[in-house]
Amino acid sequence: AQAQTFNFKMATFYVAGDPAFDVANHFAKLVKEKTGGKVNIEVFQAGELGFPVVEILEATSRGVIETAIFYTSYKAAQDAVMALAGGRPGPVFNFDEQVKYVKAVEDIVASAFKRFGVTYIGPIVYGEPEILVSTKPLTGIKDIKGRIFRASGMAAEFYKALGAQAVMLPAGELYQALQLGTIDGLEWTDFTANYKLGFYEVAKHVLEPTKGVNLHSEAAVHAFLVFNPAVWDKLPKEYQEIVKSSCAEAYKWGGEFIANLNKEYRQKWIDAGAKVVQLPQEDLDQIISVGAKLIASYAAKSPDAKDFCLKLIPLWKELGYERWSKALEGELK
């Protein structure tokens, strides 16, 4: 029998210059190749289809688009699991560790997406631990105190707990805000993304994560792949399998791609005259305790969120991050 052709629109929250957008396109290419051109996914940039990125899940569940990749933090205040599944404090440092983390909490994340009316497929975009970019020298937590940083979501709470102030500014105003000193710094994903927005031109100090102690955010799943449930259920089983395996393949491909780019762009920052420093040993305890407290405060929001956090304790221990594991265990008691 002649197989039906499926044309899907995919919403993302990236613009075309973002490496993650390449991961999305790579995924679409894989699906197209493996289905012999029977499943075509057209990837759209942030806002290109008219709805704000925070509304991507609503648009998917209504069938305005068939599929999407989504950053869970956009729903942080609506659902504590969504907050925890995005960028959050923690020790996870690279792709392999992240894969283990996803396995540990996958059921909980999938059911959170279900509450928003979409079908969870899997992680698709890997995100490196985040850096803190500043216009003034940073040598440790003492320099963070009193500064004004652009940060959102859990990062805002994290930096507040360290004594900084968090403000919201839209992306379009960040460059000039750094240039003119309206803000002292910002947190905006990894070296690559920060470089591409031109921040290296106007901010010359970077606080970078180290293994065992990231700053605000550990290596996080930057985006999950989701489908409209009706569309997914109608998709033939073999194509479903292809979508799932392509998602896993793109995730792995992107993990390497993004990690390598991040190394490359770290060097570009340094070449542009940036001073890249790490936190001194004596600050680690405070980072861990602030991070664990923050996560625990989300655990109190719902039984699912609590489950999520409880799974982190053995996971971190298994990965060798004893101090983190102990700290969170202490907070959750």
Binding site: Q78, M82, A166
Partner: peptide, 14 residues
């Protein structure tokens, strides 16, 4: 029905 809140600042200011 969802009592939708804004998530940009997490639970600090929702």
């Amino acid at each position: 029905l969802k009592r939708e809140v804004d998530s940009s600042l997490g639970i600090v200011f929702a």
